[in-house]
Design a protein around this nucleic acid. Sequence first.
DNA 1: TTGTATGCGTTATCAG
DNA 2: CTGATAACGCATACAA
Lengths: 351, 351
Amino acid sequence: MRFEAVTIKDIAKALGLSTSTVSRALRDSYEISPETKKLVLEYAEKINYHPNPIALSLKERRSRSIGVIVCEIANSFFSQTINGIESIAYDNGYNVMIAQSRESFKREILNLQFLTSRSIDGLIISVSTETEDFSYFKELNEKGLPIVFFDRIVDEINTHKVIVDNYKGAYDATSHLIKNGYRRIANVVNSGSLSITKERLAGYKAALTDQKIPIDESLIRFCHHGGMILSEVEDAVNSLLKNKKRPDAIFASSDKLTISCLRILKARKIAVPDTMALVGFSNTDLTELMSPPLTTIRQPAFEMGEIATSLLLQLIESKRPVTDFETKILASELIIRDSSIKKKIKTKVLS
Amino acid sequence: MRFEAVTIKDIAKALGLSTSTVSRALRDSYEISPETKKLVLEYAEKINYHPNPIALSLKERRSRSIGVIVCEIANSFFSQTINGIESIAYDNGYNVMIAQSRESFKREILNLQFLTSRSIDGLIISVSTETEDFSYFKELNEKGLPIVFFDRIVDEINTHKVIVDNYKGAYDATSHLIKNGYRRIANVVNSGSLSITKERLAGYKAALTDQKIPIDESLIRFCHHGGMILSEVEDAVNSLLKNKKRPDAIFASSDKLTISCLRILKARKIAVPDTMALVGFSNTDLTELMSPPLTTIRQPAFEMGEIATSLLLQLIESKRPVTDFETKILASELIIRDSSIKKKIKTKVLS
DNA sequence: TTGTATGCGTTATCAG
DNA sequence: CTGATAACGCATACAA
């Protein structure tokens, strides 16, 4: 604040009072006479005084800011979540510091160190695809840093978690494909260590099993970098296409993977859904403008951000340690854009 | 840092030294003996000491963080810019605080106050559509807060600016439409007070004039909220469609407006480009997956972020006041996706 | 080469 | 009701 030097001292000096009196007047303390209060408040207003939050942080040993780490902000799901986080944070006078891991464990830890060294009061995080060692989070959490996990959570750490019903989302999507006549449904998923991968994979398998379709492991492809490297998704799709029993549909298990698959199929001039159907998790509003409009599973990202933040602020501001942590499971929504599937149904019926 | 109490004092006490010795040893000061240094550094490492940046900020009166204000992070152009900003900032040990104005002047100022009260060392901003009063920025800048404007700049304030060649981008896009046979080209633009609006409008008009096509003001529609309110774009498009001499093409002057126009046309079942061509500024990678793939003017967003940040850090770290401010103008790129236009050419040729 | 004292802006404690 | 002082964690001018 090189450029705004107005402090409590300036007020004290100008008014011939002590700094403590001014401080108390500003905080509307009961021990200050109404006249003094009025005097101080008016003068403070006049010279446009604002308390220095840095000094406050030092004193109160809290920064009134929370850290957010996601893999990428240029991803609809996460940018929508951040909007939700910000809305609650700002309403409560908290600042939000955003950092991106870009799906790298190393960057995640670096960001974490940066944020904690900046004295964040709490952390909201969706871990990277690479993250398999959770000791760092665990340690911080045990040392007293409140953490709320969302989306890609860490089961081992006992704190609040906010997720969508990944199992049901994947189950619904897969069932939808089956209902429309597809039988060889491939699944392109994130790293197997992610919570969402496990849950979505389970939903996919359950849907198949319930419809008496055998699970073919050769149709499941893991993308360990979550699609951050396009070639990894290309390899996955290509190998699926080369499969001796080629799949007739792909279920993509994340926003990034869905878009990547679509892009790759398009580049290879494979008609979607006529040659290959595609359904996936995605929060991109633009899917409806795409060709074809995709059927997607949408997550209530904004609400997830809001809820995660409320829970975090609760943790931060609770005096005594919280013991009853909860895992909020929100509903995910299958958005069926019929045009992409109907054709296929016809084809199926006719053939 | 409630959870990490290791301070310089702890080290001093443990090692039987004074805090100043420890401080100097940690900063590798020349006046400290190698042995003491080694002792201190090793112990600091061992107990995992990290300096408290809050205390440092208070002392040094700088926070090593920069503020960024954009209208919306869930917008490809801005999220890409932020990526560029972050990459440079983090390389230089700066933290980035991101805030969204959501095209509201009020929110912009609130964010600004929040950020400055948090002692940001500098600001990177693309102003909101509503912003017409620049006195606030001017004042802060004159008080010593380094500011770099990008995209939507404020001409009146003498500091670094980073923009793309908006004039040429609009000129190229309009020319492209003309070259493909369109004659009644509408222009849907942001608020008229924005720098980009003026520049893009000028490019659009110049292209028409150069091709001897009269400028029809009834084909120009301003969106004062930059498309944040969908109905405003709907009104613009609807009124264009009702125009007695209906346009045969729309040139949309921002990412948000381009997507909005496309969505509206689609909802109204107006074939693009057969019934109405559409070209616009857009950084969304997804345009190529859209139906139809749009011809767009793309801005080098990431690079803009990088450059803006380099300039800002230069301002922040320069000892003496800088006087030779520069306006960096990067090239914008017209990405022609022929399929969207070719049909139209055929139609034109045939008719 | 090392230690002491001071200040950054604020609030809490204790004294008047 | 108000004022002086210490403390938050760190860096540094000044002393030794």
